[in-house]
Deep mutational scan, measured.
Amino acid sequence: MMAYMNPGPHYSVNALALSGPSVDLMHQAVPYPSAPRKQRRERTTFTRSQLEELEALFAKTQYPDVYAREEVALKINLPESRVQVWFKNRRAKCRQQRQQQKQQQQPPGGQAKARPAKRKAGTSPRPSTDVCPDPLGISDSYSPPLPGPSGSPTTAVATVSIWSPASESPLPEAQRAGLVASGPSLTSAPYAMTYAPASAFCSSPSAYGSPSSYFSGLDPYLSPMVPQLGGPALSPLSGPSVGPSLAQSPTSLSGQSYGAYSPVDSLEFKDPTGTWKFTYNPMDPLDYKDQSAWKFQIL
């Protein structure tokens, strides 16, 4: 009977010793046993002879290597770790002494450095960015050149030099007046198309007034536009458009034309069986010896 009264063996659950049927240790109110408190290391007290050895090595170098620390530790009968900690504390003490010396050398008012006064946003004049500046400075420094007289040679050079070769001289006033084509001369031969040399188009003023001019072949195509416009036809070669000034309004060009419109200028042929003959000019830059190549039959 006494065997049943004795408590059973101890069981360990999660490293906790349980005594038989008792489960009081598993209750929430019972805390787990805490780790033992780490003991504080005792402070090391250095003797005068030990301090002399350490100070002598510190005077040589503030960062001794492990071999120098072990050698000193053997002399003063201390572990190497204590020597390492002593050098660490000695360097910190040396830095603190240097900072105190710097503070003593500075004057009393030198510690508080005078800061520059901050400028207020409204006091300083700042350039306004509302208006974009002129990058080319046209509004201040540029002045347009004065327009020359209508009959000045410089204007003629600016007008005619675009179309004339570089080897030719500017046309005088008398020749510029001949550039304007007359109405009857352009409409006299509506079906004849003559190819003149390129030099005649640039230099010869008579080429624009003769039936064999460069633009005589364009007349049949330009004249039928007159009834559609409801007024006189516009002429690209009329009046002052080739003269001194090219800047004319469309209203000033509306009254200039080749001449009176005639039914002869239409595109319809009077004789459907007729042929169109292209007159060959020996001055043509295209060297075609066979003139029969310039004739064709309209079917």
Results as ranks from 00 to 15, higher is better:
278 F>Y: 01
245 S>W: 15
156 A>Q: 02
272 P>G: 06
60 K>C: 05
288 Y>R: 14
44 T>F: 12
41 R>E: 13
141 S>K: 05
258 Y>P: 00
291 Q>H: 09
259 G>A: 06
133 P>F: 04
246 L>Q: 02
102 K>C: 04
17 A>E: 00
13 V>E: 00
70 E>Y: 10
178 G>H: 14
130 D>T: 04
75 K>E: 14
5 M>A: 00
128 S>R: 07
48 R>A: 05
264 V>A: 02
267 L>C: 01
257 S>I: 11
224 P>K: 09
102 K>W: 00
57 L>V: 02
165 P>A: 04
270 K>E: 12
220 P>V: 14
62 Q>W: 05
152 S>V: 02
270 K>N: 01
260 A>Q: 04
33 P>K: 05
217 G>R: 13
7 P>A: 02
157 V>C: 01
71 E>K: 10
297 Q>F: 10
164 S>T: 08
6 N>P: 08
267 L>Q: 00
226 V>M: 06
245 S>R: 14
280 Y>Q: 00
67 Y>H: 01
159 T>M: 10
291 Q>T: 10
283 M>Y: 08
17 A>L: 15
37 R>P: 07
193 M>W: 09
197 P>E: 07
185 S>Q: 07
190 P>C: 12
174 A>G: 03
141 S>R: 14
58 F>I: 15
104 Q>W: 02
291 Q>G: 08
42 E>N: 02
143 S>R: 04
84 Q>Y: 04
75 K>I: 12
167 S>M: 05
297 Q>Y: 12
238 S>F: 15
245 S>I: 14
191 Y>N: 01
275 T>Q: 01
5 M>W: 09
189 A>P: 04
34 S>K: 07
245 S>D: 00
45 T>F: 06
53 E>A: 09
290 D>W: 13
108 P>L: 03
14 N>P: 09
129 T>C: 05
251 T>N: 03
165 P>M: 09
52 E>F: 06
14 N>A: 12
251 T>P: 05
239 G>M: 06
150 S>M: 07
107 P>T: 06
163 W>A: 00
201 F>H: 02
193 M>E: 00
279 T>K: 09
28 Q>E: 05
153 P>T: 09
179 L>G: 02
77 N>Y: 06
186 L>W: 09
266 S>N: 01
81 S>I: 05
270 K>W: 14
31 P>N: 10
293 A>T: 09
220 P>K: 13
178 G>P: 06
87 F>I: 14
130 D>Q: 06
216 S>N: 05
132 C>F: 04
9 P>S: 02
89 N>F: 11
256 Q>R: 11
249 S>R: 13
292 S>M: 11
50 Q>H: 07
6 N>Q: 09
208 Y>D: 01
140 D>S: 03
99 Q>R: 06
61 T>M: 09
111 Q>K: 07
210 S>M: 11
196 A>M: 11
244 P>K: 11
144 P>F: 10
194 T>H: 08
